[in-house]
Design a protein around this nucleic acid. Structure first.
Length: 829
RNA sequence: GCGGACGUGGCGGAACGGGUAGACGCGCCGGGUUUAGGUCCCGGUCCCUUCGGGGGUGGAGGUUCGAGUCCUCUCGUCCGCACCA
């Protein structure tokens, strides 16, 4: 494609300038008002792909726009550099993960610089850098000391073939190991957790005030999964020594409890199973243990299988509301991880209980009157509202009222209490991997789990380990690393060989950016206070739940353990923007799918500006985009637009144009210029980049016509200069170059243009005249036209007179100056 | 199954608080300049039409002077969660 200018030369020139002039380095004592703009730091997987291009184009636009708005914009970037792909590459090729990762970082960084995205590279952090790991480990220890990190036995996906733990992503949909094909089983290991559940309620309620997409807030709400109900302590017949605690969201239905169920993993199963039923229960538990979580949920959809999935324990429990004795079962449809791991079963008002009761021949008692015809239409469990029946003192109440009355009864009788339950579980951070941040703990036979002293941090994994395709972490096999002494008593001890989930690294990097030069702590409180919270966070929707939840938790935790000042905002990201995914043939564009379209070829052809403009223009930033055969043509079109812009700006040679007084045509162009400033500014503020670009295109089209006519020098100058400002954050190279050719100085250091209010308001507008809602005429009227004049003008319209054909209007709706609707009796009938 | 989002020309999309549906771009059609061009410039492009106009935003209803926009039902696509008591 022949271009109007040497794209590559211009882009390389300006990228060098921005680097040499340190344009986007911002010090913590910068006097301008602060603005913290942050794109989620990337996992370095090699050169940028289109998803990166889209993300960092948006981010760069924000940085440059806010800078032109007069802010001190903090624009840091780093790399989420720990993770499994590097470790797998090490096993495959023998290259150390660090060497592999650093090479990928270099590639990605080069792509981003070539895109023209600007950062304060002094602040770059990498998760695997010892100076970052140091503080990740310190935070871990402080959480441990505050009781927010703890050790517990937890189920993991265990591959018997590989003799190792698998991440959920490594388990295939059929429940087999992706490497060996063995059936994955559940196993229990001692692992580290962060107590995120302690913050469940705060993480939920604080969502309300965030300027985040509703979709993301909703996903977080569902993930936290708050439900209100009651906990009840059930007596076990003949066993005064134990009570079985159950959780229910429907305490109003307790009169309908016809049996109770424990999860197979429930600690009371052994104690409450009678000898007569032990064999069946043991059998059930063994089968459940062999099953993966997946199998357990998938097969459950076929109802007959339920029969095999429950077993009577031989014990009976007592209904606290009516004293009746009901049988106690073990069944795998009850999960140990939710509520208390045991339920009261009310088949009439819960569909799963209904199915189970039918199969086991258990009684069903309705406690809510279902709607008329429910049974006749084959309705089973009825979970809706209605009048309480068969429920003693609750009869006649509605469900909500009965719930309250039931809870009051339980609390008065001391048989239970109001209880809020969350779906959210504590965060399991242990990973049986090498390429992650080691957990700084030593196990001593005398003192147990002992923190590594803070002055001995960071704990670094040894480099000279073998990466073998066994699935075992090389750390666990390294005796030199493992063997140590107890920090308290000096006894022989062993190190923790697990590393931390990489989500731990990404849960505080935005705090480190405030002051990455600090060697006394993870970040200085003063620096955090200056920049936090992040004013604009930008990233992919795929992080809507885990990363964003963990980061919100971590910010609170570091405040509460005293690492951050108590008055630091507890929400790290004030505004969040989630961009859409780039798709190809219906699936996400990604390296693993092999459907990447590398940006490099566009840098070499149309240039970074055209590619950036394409990503801004192609559709709403939040929407997914399908990369198709037509896409290259659209990108070429963006290049053609930049050519037109170039020719337009270069054609404005003062000698060739008119001076002197302005005519009406000149005024029209001035109005268009100021309206464009108004529209583009508003569009950028509301993240409507596609329409912002469209308005700039319209203005170029208009100015092209104006240049051909008889342009006025001042009017053309104003128009082109304004346009260059508006496009500066979007296509920084070409606009910077054109500005330099026209004026001295740096375009991107200039203030954002302001529009003249008197010029954006038009003097006349088109008034639409409708008859019965159909457009019949369009009149040019003064913008300040009164209601009466508008009505009169509309009724005087020859088109209206014609359509009315003598009929008198029954009503005239006037919305001056834009619209008049003449309504006739016939039309409104 | 539960929760949510979205359905507009050949295509991506615009229409911000109910008020001119289709901005801008791609593609396509026609013309011009160069003519080596896949360059550049100009015009046209929702459908039907007897050229008066009529119809049209997945489908069916409704509210309203007026609905792409609000309400009900329905069909379709996508996303999140999924035996959560």
């Amino acid at each position: 494609m022949a271009r109007a200018y040497d794209v590559q030369a211009v882009e390389e020139k300006w990228q060098a300038r921005w680097r040499e002039e340190e344009t986007y380095q911002v010090d913590n004592d910068d006097p301008r008002p602060p603005f913290y703009a942050l794109c989620m730091y990337p996992y370095p997987s090699g050169p940028a792909h289109q998803g990166h291009v889209r993300n960092y184009t948006f981010g760069d636009l924000v940085v440059r726009y806010q800078t032109m708005q007069g802010k001190a914009v903090l624009s840091p970037l780093g790399f989420d550099s720990f993770g499994l792909p590097a470790e797998n590459a090490a096993i495959r090729t023998g290259t150390h993960p660090r060497v592999f990762t650093d090479a990928r970082i270099t590639e990605l960084k080069e792509s981003l610089i070539r895109l023209g995205a600007v950062y304060d590279w002094r602040r770059e952090v990498r998760s695997h850098d010892p100076s970052y790991m140091h503080w990740t480990q310190l935070i871990f220890l402080r959480l441990f000391k505050a009781g927010l990190a703890y050790r517990a036995n937890a189920p993991v996906n265990w591959c018997p073939g590989c003799q190792t733990v698998l991440a959920n992503e490594q388990v295939l949909p059929d429940g087999r190991c992706e490497r060996s094909g063995d059936v994955v089983v559940t196993r229990y290991l001692e692992q580290w957790f962060f107590k995120i559940t302690a913050y469940a309620d705060e993480l939920l309620t604080a969502l309300d005030d965030l300027e985040w997409p509703e979709r993301v807030k909703l996903m977080q709400r569902n993930w936290i999964g708050r439900s209100e109900g009651a906990e009840m302590d059930l007596e076990v017949v003949g066993r005064p020594d134990v009570t079985l605690t159950v959780f229910t969201t429907r305490p109003d239905t307790t009169f309908g409890m016809t049996y109770a169920v424990m999860a197979p993993e429930h600690p009371l199963v052994d104690a409450l199973t009678t000898d007569e039923h032990r064999a069946a229960v043991v059998d059930l538990r063994a089968r459940v243990a062999m099953e993966s979580e997946l199998e357990r949920t998938v097969v459950a959809e076929t109802a007959p299988a339920l029969e095999k999935r429950g077993a009577f324990t031989g014990s009976w429990v007592v209904n606290p509301f009516n004293g009746e004795q009901v049988p106690l079962y073990v069944a795998d449809y009850v999960l140990m991880g939710y509520g208390s791991g045991a339920i009261m079963a009310v088949p009439a008002e819960d569909q799963r209980d209904w199915a189970f009761a039918k199969l086991h021949g258990l009684p069903i008692v309705r406690t809510v009157e279902p709607p008329e015809g429910w049974d006749e239409q084959g309705g089973e469990a009825y979970a809706g509202d209605g009048v309480k029946v068969n429920s003693g003192f609750l009869d006649g109440l509605d469900v909500a009222g009965a719930k309250e009355a039931a809870i009051r009864f339980l609390e008065r009788e001391q048989r239970g209490r109001r209880k809020v339950n969350y779906r959210l579980r504590d965060w399991l951070v242990s990973r049986q991997r090498y390429w992650g941040c080691p957990i700084p703990i030593v196990y001593c036979p005398v003192h147990g789990a002992v923190p590594v002293p803070e002055d001995e941090l960071p704990v670094l994994a040894p480099d000279d380990v073998d990466f073998l395709p066994t699935g075992q972490s090389p750390l666990a096999l390294d005796e030199d690393f493992k063997r140590t002494t107890c920090p308290i008593g000096g006894e022989p001890a062993v190190r923790e060989t697990d590393t931390m989930d990489t989500f731990v690294d990404s849960s505080w990097y935005f705090l480190r950016f405030c002051d990455p030069f600090d060697s006394d702590g993870p970040f200085s409180p003063a620096a955090a206070a200056r920049w936090m919270p992040v004013d604009q966070y930008i990233g992919g929707i795929e992080h809507a739940i885990l990363h964003l939840m963990y980061a919100r938790f971590f910010t609170r935790a570091v405040i509460d353990v005293g690492l951050a000042p108590p008055d630091l905002p507890r929400e790290p990201f004030r505004r969040l923007f989630t961009q859409g995914m780039i798709r190809m043939d219906g699936s996400k564009m990604s390296k693993s799918k092999g459907n990447l379209v590398a940006p490099e070829r566009y840098f070499r052809s149309v240039g970074a500006d055209a590619l950036r403009l394409f990503h801004l223009f192609v559709g709403p930033p939040t929407d997914d985009f399908d990369w198709t055969d037509q896409t290259d043509e659209v990108i070429d079109g963006c290049g053609r637009f930049l050519d037109r812009l170039w020719r337009l700006a270069e054609s404005a040679a003062p000698a060739a144009v008119r001076s002197g007084p302005l005519g009406e045509a000149d005024l029209e162009v001035r109005r268009a210029t100021h309206r464009t400033i108004q529209q583009v500014t508003a569009d950028i503020e509301r993240w409507s980049y596609n329409t912002a670009v469209a308005h700039c295109m319209e203005q170029v089209n208009l100015l092209q016509r104006y240049v051909r006519d008889d342009p006025h020098a001042d009017v053309l100058e104003e128009a082109v200069d304004a346009l260059l400002h508006l496009l500066a954050p979007m296509v920084p190279h070409v606009t910077a170059e054109l500005w330099e050719r026209r004026h001295a100085g740096r375009l991107h250091a200039r203030p954002w243009p302001k529009f003249d209010a008197s010029l954006v308001s038009e003097e006349t507008v088109t008034m639409v005249v409708q008859v019965n809602g159909k457009v019949r005429d369009r009149l040019q009227v003064p913008v300040g036209i009164g209601e009466d004049d508008a009505r009169a003008a509309a009724l005087a319209s020859s088109r209206v007179v014609e359509v009315l054909d003598g009929e008198a209007p029954s009503r005239v709706v006037v919305r001056a100056p834009r619209l008049v609707n003449v309504v006739t009796a016939i039309g409104s009938a």
